[in-house]
Design a protein around this nucleic acid. Structure first.
Lengths: 339, 339
DNA sequence: AAGTACAGCGAAAACGGTTTCGTGTTGATA
DNA sequence: TATCAACACGAAACCGTTTTCGCTGTACTT
């Protein structure tokens, strides 16, 4: 086991000072050609690599980004992480992932763990419990300490920071309008309670499209589940309780599950009933029939978030100006609707 | 913006030395009741939290784990991360995730980035390129430096370290046997080239089950794709080229896609043709029909890996003894086969 | 009165770097 | 010959902790 070599080791071996070694390795003008060559050769030979921790302590920069998300098994968050990771890595940053598992307490604990020097900034999507509680003090504390935060997807307006979202209202509006254009009359919405910022916006887009049409909103056609967790019984009861010819769901799991129920009842998709979901995941692509979705462009969202964060981290000025980027959703047409 | 407070700040305010503050906060016997109370009260008031980086530098322990995996969008890896994250967090560790994207170079670069002090140990699954090349020097270097490594799922025997796998051969054997028991005769396998350790083992289990039966292996019923990437054309051509009554696939995507093709040909599942895949993801659960799979217990695998790694990191002894844990796969029976 | 014990605290080194600010040597210049 | 700039390097501070060791003062012992 050959331990890591340090500047001190090189200095001792070559009988020069630590400062000289440090400068030589950085190709400083101050050091003679001769010495530089000697030091660099030695460093290469022993595979010297500076200790990141020491550099972090000195620079007060860790080159780590903290990502705190509710869940990692949902395809959307996975793609966001991938986007963040790719972009961050290209700029020399590492990504520390923490899962809040939709719990307020875990979100707080995770942030506290990371906020004491481990990271240069946060990229987060709020846990449902946090959005429900409306308590954002942990975020405020962090921003007050000067640690930059970028909120994506599940955001709040009560915290001053950069934000990245897709236009969820528009997405739902587009989807609902598509149904209407295709002659669907009884259009349902399976969503979650309004405390989730995204669900609220999507519900609003759904309403808007219906209100603009001659159809109007029928409240009994809206199912609000308490969370994004699958609740097979409630969805089944809801779909069994009435006749529908189109269903919009706030995620792909609800949609694919609903399609299965419809098929078991002998309904033809999309003729008898059409479906559109949110999130363009594997499930949508490989479902049978494949599911039309409102794509949230998770990877793009991750990239944009990472760019905003790193730009802020590396900017010298302490401008307290925050922006909210709104990405456009797109409808990915597949076999669960006419086309 | 109130910046973080340090020991030095407290010392200055309270007119004591830094050492005294440090000790007082740790409730050292050395410090008088009075002073301790004063210091602790002050620290609490100003919400003092020790700087992780400084502590890392001092202790040569970061409480960070580096996880390097080929991909994050595959359900299996996602669940493993979740298992790692949960367990590691409970023991006070953070998880730094890096994606190799199946590239040897990225794997090397990521490891190098992390190996210079950022982490206490690695949990990894090899990229396909690494397994194909058979070059494991980056792993060897790291272990030689005394950094513990745990390899999971995609492993190699050329590196001395702890390993966690499921019994892939057994999993494929169980699945194939199930087909045979259900009277299937023409059983195909869709897999990848043997350089992927898991595919090799699975192919071997498939062969074993067939050889044990009266059926025997028909090489034309084995499709070896170059990677885990979806190749719709080759799968379609393969399935179109012959008559089959059962298909085992090394992942759920291949299986679900294949089911779709069969259905479009008018075949009934599972009567005319049955399917089993690997990986118990959302896709399997919500596919139509739902897919029977060999579950790899990703979350468990993550937990076990994290436990092995952290135990090693925290153990004092430098015992160079490594173990390989083999988890049992289980067959999750769903509608794509008889039951 | 001298010695001892101990409580309570601070100085300083250490972790591994970076960076500022000298300082001694050399050769050229006036 | 005295002056000076340039060159090449080292000492030391610093980032924020922890920890060892030594010092001071008080109280107690004999």
């Amino acid at each position: 086991m050959k331990a890591k070599i340090t500047l001190k080791d090189i200095a001792r071996e070559l009988e020069v000072s630590i400062s000289t070694v440090s400068k030589a390795l950085k190709n400083s003008e101050e050091i003679s050609r001769d010495t530089k060559e000697k030091v660099q050769a030695f460093a290469k030979l022993y595979n010297y690599k500076p200790n990141n921790i020491a550099i972090s302590l000195k620079n007060k920069r860790t080159k780590n980004i903290g990502v705190v998300i509710p869940d990692i098994v949902h395809h959307f968050f996975t793609t966001v992480i991938r986007g963040i990771e790719k972009y961050a890595n290209a700029r020399g940053y590492n990504v520390i992932v923490c899962l809040s598992e939709e719990s307020f307490d875990k979100e707080v604990i995770n942030m506290e763990m990371l906020a004491n020097g481990s990271i240069d900034g946060f990229i987060m999507s709020l846990s449902s419990e946090t959005q429900e509680k409306g308590d954002f003090n942990h975020l405020k504390e962090v921003t007050e300490q000067g640690i930059p935060v970028v909120l994506f997807d599940r955001i709040t307006n009560e915290v001053d920071c950069d934000k990245v979202i897709i236009d969820d209202e528009l997405g739902a509006y587009m989807a609902t309008k598509k149904f209407i254009e295709q002659g669907k009359k009884k259009i349902a919405l399976i969503t979650t309670d309004d405390y989730l910022s995204v669900s609220k916006a999507r519900t609003s887009g759904y309403r808007k499209a219906l209100e603009e049409s001659s159809l109007g909103v029928d409240e009994s056609r809206i199912l609000k589940l308490p969370s994004m967790e699958m609740d097979e019984k409630r969805i089944k009861d809801f779909l069994d309780s009435q006749e529908l010819d189109a269903v919009l769901c706030v995620n792909e799991i609800f949609a694919v599950y609903s399609m299965g129920l419809a098929q078991r009842k002998g309904l033809k998709i999309p003729e008898d009933i059409s479906f559109i979901g949110f999130t363009d995941g594997l499930l949508s692509k490989y479902a049978n029939p494949s599911l039309t979705v409102v794509s949230q462009h998770g990877e793009k969202m991750g990239e944009v978030s990472a760019k905003m964060l790193i730009d802020k981290v590396e900017s010298e000025e302490e401008e307290e100006t925050y922006q909210t980027k709104i990405l456009e959703p797109t409808l990915v047409i597949r076999d669960s609707i006419f086309h």
